[in-house]
Amino acid sequence: MEQKVFQHSKGIKEVPNQHSKEVLSFKEALILLDISSSMLYKLTHQKLISYYKPNGKLIYFKREDLINWMLSNKQPSNEEVKLEVFNNLKMTKNASEYGK
């Protein structure tokens, strides 16, 4: 499995593979989400993303929560929209025929 490299002010350091960790630090969450630290601070401040603060200072994230956040607000493809419209029309037609 590939390991990510995190650029740190004191040099470069390897970060353990996030696939093996359930709980991630702030820096590990940045790598997983591929966003800036200011963006992650903004998301936590506005409570748009779940986080944990066990000692009142450092924050941690559940990997599953971060992935669910990344996959939220799905935008359906044109094919998915067509299929949904077709199914709705089919159900409407069946309901109107049943009511006769």
Score class of each variant (00 low, 15 high):
V5M: 13
S38Q: 13
L40T: 01
W69A: 04
P76Q: 01
V85H: 01
N87Y: 03
F6Y: 15
K100N: 15
F26E: 07
K21T: 02
K47F: 14
S96R: 09
S50R: 10
K47H: 14
L66Y: 01
I49P: 01
L43F: 12
Q18N: 07
S77P: 00
H8M: 08
G56L: 12
M39K: 15
L58T: 07
N94F: 04
F86W: 07
L32M: 11
F6G: 08
K47Y: 14
A95M: 10
P16D: 12
S77E: 02
Y60L: 11
K100I: 14
P54C: 07
L43N: 05
N88K: 13
L48G: 07
M70N: 03
S20K: 01
I35L: 04
Y52K: 15
N68P: 00
H19R: 09
K4P: 09
S38W: 13
T44A: 05
S9W: 11
K42Y: 13
Y51W: 14
Y41H: 13
V15W: 01
D65F: 02
K27Q: 09
V15A: 01
K42Q: 14
Q18S: 06
S50K: 15
F61M: 04
I35R: 06
T92L: 15
K53Y: 01
E22V: 01
V85M: 05
S96A: 10
T92R: 06
P16S: 06
Q46F: 12
N78Q: 02
Q46M: 12
I12L: 11
Y51G: 08
K13Y: 05
D34T: 05
H8R: 14
R63E: 05
K93H: 11
K100P: 08
K90W: 03
L66G: 02
Q7G: 06
K27W: 05
K74I: 14
Q46G: 07
L33Y: 02
V23H: 03
N68A: 06
K21P: 04
V23E: 03
Q18H: 06
A29T: 11
N17E: 10
